[in-house]
């Protein structure tokens, strides 16, 4: 069964149809890419899946963490959706700028805290245990993304590439089943991009994730993804494995043909 499935998802803003009848499905362990020219509705689709927007029409189904039963998550609150197992990163990095690297990852684990507010304030043993476990997990994740030495730095003091990595670490801290990456390679140089490709595959295997990503770098997409959806003006114009997409005339016309050197 699919981890994520959308049925006829449509998003209209006034007269503009940003996403038109999107039907995608992501299977367990897959890396699926959504591509398309600027304004094709990719990020809007992400915002619908993560609950930022409620779709005008259509339904979104998720197979939550620790469950094999599909659940309708259409129009749920974003924080509820996160607790069911979807984590995301943002196109324009949105770290908690005034917090340290470690705190950024700790904050993302807050949703799993079971202790109450008084428990946290009066050092109840349960909370101390939780806090310790959270710190250990955070440090483990930071080590994993190579940021353990920076754990005390302000998040925004990191170089751009590391900020992206921190955002991924932060998303992983919520214990997701499905990870949505919104242009993870934006602003990266070729070496960093190559590193990222490996990194995404590694975390997929290590954390048993399913990954849905938006990207513009054709190289990454062709390397990394198992399947690709191509959007143009909100409509899905093609889907399939990378080889098919590369040779699809409509896609070439709409997108690849324009950016010849990508």
């Amino acid at each position: 069964m699919s981890v994520l499935r959308t049925e006829h998802v449509t998003m209209r803003f006034g007269g503009v149809t940003a996403v038109d009848d999107l039907n995608l499905h992501v299977e367990k362990g897959e890396i699926v890419a959504v591509i398309g020219p600027n304004g094709a509705g990719k990020t809007t689709a992400f915002n619908q899946i993560t609950g930022v927007y409620t779709p005008t029409e259509g339904k979104i189904f998720l197979e939550p963490v620790n469950s094999s039963q599909e659940v309708d998550i259409t129009g749920m609150r974003p924080d509820k959706i996160v607790s069911m197992g979807i984590a995301r990163t943002f196109q324009n990095i949105r770290l908690f700028s005034k917090q340290t690297v470690l705190d950024n990852v700790l904050i993302a684990q807050h949703l799993h805290v079971k202790s109450t507010l008084p428990g946290a304030i009066f050092y109840w043993p349960n909370y101390c245990k939780e806090e310790k476990a959270m710190r250990e997990k955070a440090m483990h994740l930071l080590e994993r993304v190579g940021l353990a030495d920076n754990c005390g730095d302000l998040a925004t003091s990191l170089p751009y590439g590391l900020q992206r990595r921190l955002e991924i670490a932060r998303a992983l801290a919520t214990n997701p089943k499905l990870l949505l990456l919104d242009e993870p390679a934006a602003g990266m140089n070729p070496t960093e991009t190559l590193e990222l490709t490996h990194f995404v595959r590694e975390i997929r295997d290590e954390f048993q994730l399913t990954i849905l990503l938006i990207e513009h770098h054709m190289q990454i997409i062709m390397d990394i993804s198992d399947r690709i959806y191509v959007l143009e003006f909100g409509k899905t114009i093609a889907d399939g494995v990378p080889a098919e997409i590369q040779n699809n005339q409509r896609v070439i016309d709409a997108y690849l043909g324009v950016v010849e050197d990508a």
Partner: peptide, 20 residues
Amino acid sequence: SYGRAFLAIRDDEVAAEAMG
């Protein structure tokens, strides 16, 4: 952890919500 959540809301509400 609760205090950190408060600070997260102050810093970036959208990101805080996206972190659950």
